[in-house]
């Protein structure tokens, strides 16, 4: 029996898990990245990494988000190194093409999230996605659950301030 056949059920389950989480994972990545194009790239990268490295493990949405976050962090580090060599306006042109894909009214939320630090943005994006518990977030981010409780609320207070400040 070939390996592919032996893993067929596993792959089917994984495929279902990917599909079930696709919309929510994409929303999480939009909140993290702020742009459609980048969120799309990182979602592809996330699924590819999951397939390559973790396909034999139990299907886990928490692991999916962890991989997505690491893919995002890798991208931002790479971009920090490469940005010197890039034409900045070229990147913005791509972003503009997809700006219309963001729902009206959510642009302000993305701008508000963009003002948070990377860890805070990750924490609140995971929480409002509703797929992972405080416990899982604590494990993922290497902090205590008690700290997650307090910090989540502080971030919400901060977001409320930013969004109130945006209103005319």
């Amino acid at each position: 029996m070939i390996k592919g056949k032996r893993s067929k059920d596993t792959m089917h389950d994984l495929s279902s898990m990917f599909e079930e989480n696709r919309a929510r994972l994409f929303s999480y990545l939009m909140r993290m990245c702020g742009t459609y194009e980048l969120a799309w790239d990182i979602m592809q990268e996330t699924y590819t990494r999951y397939l390559e490295r973790y396909r034999e493990r139990e299907n886990s949405p928490a692991l999916l988000y962890k991989i997505a976050y690491h893919a995002f962090v890798d991208h931002t580090r790479r971009q920090a190194r490469e940005v010197v060599f890039e034409e900045e306006h070229a990147v913005h042109e791509i972003d503009l093409e997809h700006t219309l894909m963001v729902r009206e009214g959510y642009q302000s939320v993305l701008r508000a999230l963009g003002q948070l630090g990377q860890d805070d943005r990750n924490l609140i994006s995971l929480v409002i996605g509703g797929d992972v518990s405080y416990r899982q977030i604590a494990d993922m981010m290497g902090m205590s659950e008690a700290n997650v409780k307090v910090r989540v609320h502080r971030i919400r207070i901060r977001l409320r301030e930013i969004l109130k400040g945006e209103k005319p």
């Binding site: 990917f18 696709r22 919309a23 994409f26 929303s27 939009m30 909140r31 459609y36 799309w40 979602m43 592809q44 699924y47 590819t48 397939l51 219309l100 894909m101 963001v102 729902r103 009214g105 959510y106 939320v109 993305l110 609140i124 409002i128 509703g130 977001l159 969004l163």
Partner: peptide, 15 residues
């Protein structure tokens, strides 16, 4: 507001 739909359409992935 935070949990409302983010985008008009979620893209497919090519894994």
């Amino acid at each position: 507001t935070l949990r409302s739909e983010v985008v008009e359409a979620v893209p497919e992935v090519s894994v």
